[in-house]
């Protein structure tokens, strides 16, 4: 009985969120919608990161590199080769995924901060290559003239229209993540994280599951990067530097690792935070870093643990 009521409430809440999201753009200016779009894109990348870090426990500092792989693949395919963005975006996601498998197979034997440093090395190397391989990746000038998405007769060039594309992409990404989480693959990932210390040396099976988690995380990152490229119509190495990998991790930890909703919440909040603090001027990064540190110290399970508290207070969780 109580369980049913809880379900009803959750469904109602979900519908409310959905409707609110649909009508939201009507009330928002170009600037607000751009920040929102960036938040949605980050959310996709962070949901991906949740596979590798939240479930399988792999500390990776390469997520921005994979976002970059996706962005550059689609940028190159849709400009130099003139491919339709509808094809080049999936190609970007798959491209990032393939690269993740190739570097993941040898790298994922590493653990803890060794893996963190190896993935860091990958991210740094990605930026070095993107900066220097001018003929293909455009150097620091980047690649511009990336075409916007378009449906027949209805270009999606404005941020307001693109918002719906991103919303659909995020919804699909979330749904898939949910399915994977409850499938045997997701459970295996979590088992790897929990049992690795207990079971000791990594068997072949363990490495395979780790590579799967890593590849999934890169697939999401690549999708996010590709969507980013067609929104900004411009990519440059700067947007995929190591600092962004740290931010993605921070988003996940601040939102709540191991939780898809936490990933989304963290992405949205950390994207908005710098914009909120624009007026602080030079002090902004000091406040930003300090706030993040406080959240790490006082909310070890991330902001998602707050919703539990609030929900309990509002009586939304039956008991």
């Amino acid at each position: 009985m109580t369980a049913l009521r809880t379900m009803d409430r959750r469904l109602l809440a979900a519908i409310a969120v959905f409707v609110a999201a649909l009508v939201l753009p009507a009330f928002i200016s170009g600037y607000g919608i751009r920040i929102l779009n960036l938040a949605l894109i980050s959310a996709i990348a962070v949901i991906g990161l949740n596979f590798a870090f939240g479930y399988a426990g792999l500390i990776t500092l390469a997520q921005a590199g994979f976002v970059g792989c996706g962005a550059y693949v689609t940028a190159i395919l849709s400009t130099t080769l003139g491919l339709s963005p509808w094809l080049s975006i999936p190609a970007g996601a798959v491209g990032a995924c393939v690269i993740a498998v190739v570097i993941g197979l040898p790298m994922l034997r590493l653990k803890g901060h060794y893996l963190a440093l190896a993935t860091l090395g990958f991210n740094v190397s990605f930026v070095i290559v993107a900066t220097n391989w001018k003929s293909v990746m455009g150097g620091t000038d980047g690649i511009s003239g990336i075409p916007p998405l378009a449906l027949p007769g209805w270009p999606l060039a404005t941020d307001h229209r693109y918002y719906y594309v991103l919303w659909v992409a995020l919804a699909v990404a979330t749904w898939c993540a949910w399915r994977i989480r409850t499938s045997h693959i997701g459970l295996a990932m979590i088992a790897v994280r929990d049992d690795e210390i207990a079971t000791g040396a990594a068997s072949v099976g363990v490495t395979r599951i780790k590579v799967q988690a890593f590849a999934l995380s890169a697939l999401y990152a690549g999708l996010a990067g590709a969507l980013f490229a067609h929104m900004t119509n411009f990519v440059a190495p700067d947007d995929f530097a190591l600092g962004h990998s740290v931010i993605y991790l921070a988003m996940l930890i601040i939102g709540g690792e191991g939780s898809i909703l936490g990933a989304i919440a963290g992405a949205v909040i950390v994207t908005f935070m710098p914009e909120l603090m624009r007026d602080l001027g030079t002090a902004y990064l000091i406040v930003f870093g300090g706030l993040m540190l406080l959240i790490l110290i006082f909310l070890p399970k991330g902001l998602i643990s707050l919703t539990g508290i609030v929900a309990r207070r509002l009586g939304m969780v039956g008991r």
Binding site: F53, I59, G112, H113, A116, V246, L249, A250, I253, G289, G290, M292, L293, L296, I297, P300
Partner: peptide, 12 residues
């Protein structure tokens, strides 16, 4: 480990 990594990055 990872919380500490992010924490030191933030303090950096």
């Amino acid at each position: 480990v990872v919380t500490v990594i992010i924490g030191t990055v933030m303090i950096g």
